[in-house]
Computed example of a mutant assay.
Amino acid sequence: MIAHLKNIFTDAGNVTQFTGRFFKEVFKRPFEIKELFRQCYNIGYKSVPLVTITGFIMGLVLTLQSRPTLVEFGAESWLPGMVALSLIREIAPVITALICAGKIASGIGAELGSMKVTEQIDAMEVSGINPYKYLVATRILAATLMIPVLVVFADGVGIIGGYVGMNIHSDVSMYRYFSQVFASLEFLDIIPATVKTFFFGFFIGMIGCYKGYTAANGTESVGKAANSAVVAASLTIFIVDMLAVQITDLFF
């Protein structure tokens, strides 16, 4: 029991030190701008097809599942606003972040883990290159910047999916649908939901990098790093979302 608690506190200290090093390195010259853009491309652009499919299905399924209940109470006209609010406030940010945690955190963990196992990181240090700044800081910053963009994109695609879902059982013009959507939205619905996605992206990148960068020797540790990165990132997303909801209710 004592040894288990000791390992927990040791891991917590290592993660804190690893995170503190990011804030120290990210503002130091030279800036790895080229590598940052490359990681933004890998994390952001290459995730667009998956996010598009996920967002469209979220909007479509939410509309189809909610419509019978609203029709029963004669409130079908509320459907566009309800779908938009549900997607933007909670469903799209969390589901998109979980999808990205599975794709991005595991990819980063496996990539850095394999570089650690094959001693490429050690070779960079010997060559006078700062591997943390080049490999870790750029990936964390790229994930922090790209996850909110992907979530906003998923919001838009999900609302379009809701429009398609409404027109399966009824005939609603696009102008009327989007008028009801925008009439139901306020800035206070959008801003808190967008702000928390920056934290989602930060923790996805941080956990993926930490698990890969600190992987043990041996090829078996690469798979463990990727798997544990997904589990830890997904759990952290739920915790951050819970805290964000409490703070939003408290101040807004």
Rank of each mutant, 00 (worst) to 15 (best):
F238T: 12
I108D: 03
D241F: 13
C100K: 05
T52M: 14
V117F: 02
A123N: 04
I91S: 01
C100A: 08
F202W: 02
L135G: 11
I237K: 14
E125V: 12
T138S: 03
M115H: 13
V222Y: 13
T138F: 02
I190G: 01
A216C: 10
V231Q: 00
T96H: 02
L243D: 09
N7K: 15
V245T: 10
G44D: 06
L36Y: 07
E25S: 10
F22K: 03
E32R: 12
E111M: 04
Y134V: 11
K46H: 10
S77C: 00
L188F: 11
E72P: 00
V164P: 13
M115A: 12
I95V: 12
L188R: 13
L250T: 11
F187D: 08
G102T: 06
R176E: 11
Y213T: 00
E186H: 10
S114F: 02
V172M: 15
V48S: 07
G218C: 12
A226M: 08
L64Y: 08
R89K: 14
L98D: 05
K196R: 04
T118N: 13
V15E: 14
T118E: 12
S234E: 10
I121P: 07
Q246G: 12
I91N: 01
I160Q: 05
V136W: 02
S127Q: 12
G20D: 01
L79W: 07
H169I: 03
S173V: 00
E76W: 09
L243C: 09
R29L: 02
L135I: 09
F178Q: 10
C209N: 05
K196P: 01
G102H: 06
F153Y: 15
M206P: 06
L5K: 11
M82T: 14
S179E: 11
F199S: 06
G165A: 11
F238L: 13
I33R: 08
F202V: 00
V230F: 03
L145T: 10
G13D: 00
M115E: 11
Y175T: 15
V164D: 14
F37V: 02
F200H: 14
R29Y: 05
Q39E: 15
T19W: 06
Y213A: 00
V195T: 04
V230I: 07
P49H: 14
T118F: 08
L79E: 06
A75G: 03
K211H: 15
I140G: 08
H169K: 12
F199C: 03
V195K: 03
I147W: 04
L70A: 01
E90W: 01
G212A: 08
P68Y: 06
I239D: 13
I239L: 14
A97R: 04
M82K: 13
M1E: 10
I2W: 10
E25G: 01
T197L: 03
A12D: 04
L62D: 07
P192S: 10
V231I: 05
P131S: 07
C209L: 01
L185A: 04
C40Y: 10
G205Q: 07
M174I: 08
K46A: 05
S66H: 10
L36P: 02
A142G: 04
Y177P: 02
L85R: 08
Q39L: 06
D241G: 15
G113A: 01
S179M: 04
M58C: 12
V51L: 08
I147F: 06
R29Q: 07
K46L: 08
D122F: 11
E186M: 06
T69Y: 09
K46N: 13
A92D: 03
R21N: 06
F199H: 07
